[in-house]
Amino acid sequence: MGAPSGPTLIGSVQRAFRLLEAMSAHDNGAPAKQLARETDLPLATTYHLLRTLVHDGYVRKLDDGGFVLGDRLETLRSSGRAQTLLSRVRPALAALRDELSSAAYLTFYEDGEIRVAEIVDGPRAPRVDLWVGFEDAGHATALGKSVLRELDEEARREYLSRHHLADLTPRTITDPPELLRRLDTSPIAPAVTDMEEYALGTVCVAVPVYSGGTLGSLGVSLRADGRARLEDVGALLLPTAERVTRSLSLSI
């Protein structure tokens, strides 16, 4: 037998959307029979679609037998919102890249981890080879250290208790007290630097940004022979960081 025809598949998708739309009107959930009536779908079809949607996380079945929208839809909504926010700041990161001939990076501190949200690079501004994930290298990158510098003492201790300060290069700071001392005495604060601590041959500088109440950092990477520029680059980052923070804090 041949594969199901296109219209049949499209029809199934349309019926599933109708169920989701009907479900969205019931914050406390609705039983399958009610959803079938509201969508004018056969009960057997409704049950079949609901089982599939529950299995994939788009719908959640309650203990009383009702159905509500599932967590996966919220994840999609949140991801879409995040992409919309990032689209607002990419031009600022691209301008920074072009002005400094350096790759530009944006990170956020989410769920106790420092994560890269965006990298804007180019042929004349290549990104650093992220050979170790930022979640395991916050102590060795300017972007990670910028976040750590802004955290309060309790949050710093909690982060350091969960992360081994791996020796990534001969210049990496692996002693927590020494790391915190250097963060608190950065000569170009609020900017902080990475002096070949993450990757030999590369230096970085970063400053803090915020997306609403979420802390993050904005930074650029340079070849090691550009270390003399770091203080000036840090000063240039600050007004861009302010613009990024304003853009990220706007409601959609």
Rank of each mutant, 00 (worst) to 15 (best):
A3K: 14
S5E: 14
T8V: 15
T8H: 09
L9F: 06
G11I: 00
S12A: 09
Q14G: 07
F17L: 13
R18L: 11
R18E: 13
L19A: 15
L19V: 12
A25L: 14
H26Y: 13
D27I: 08
G29P: 10
P31R: 07
R37V: 01
E38H: 06
T39S: 06
A44Q: 01
T46M: 01
Y47T: 02
T52K: 00
T52I: 00
D56H: 06
D56T: 08
Y58C: 01
V59G: 01
K61Y: 00
V68P: 09
L69P: 06
D71R: 03
L76M: 14
L76R: 11
R81S: 09
R81C: 03
T84G: 10
R90G: 03
E99H: 12
E99W: 04
L100C: 12
Y105A: 10
L106K: 10
F108K: 04
G112N: 14
I119S: 10
V120I: 15
D121V: 00
P123Q: 12
P123R: 10
R124V: 12
R124A: 15
A125G: 10
A125P: 09
R127L: 14
L130M: 15
W131A: 06
F134I: 08
F134A: 01
D136I: 01
H139T: 03
A140M: 09
L148P: 01
L148I: 04
L151F: 03
D152V: 00
D152A: 05
R156L: 11
Y159T: 02
L160T: 00
H164D: 07
L165S: 08
L168D: 07
I173F: 01
T174G: 05
T174I: 08
T174Y: 05
P176D: 05
P176C: 11
I188E: 10
A191N: 06
D194Y: 09
Y198K: 12
A199V: 14
T202A: 09
C204F: 01
V205Y: 03
L215W: 07
L215H: 09
L218G: 03
S221C: 00
L222C: 04
L222D: 02
D232A: 13
D232F: 00
G234N: 09
G234W: 04
L236W: 02
R243W: 00
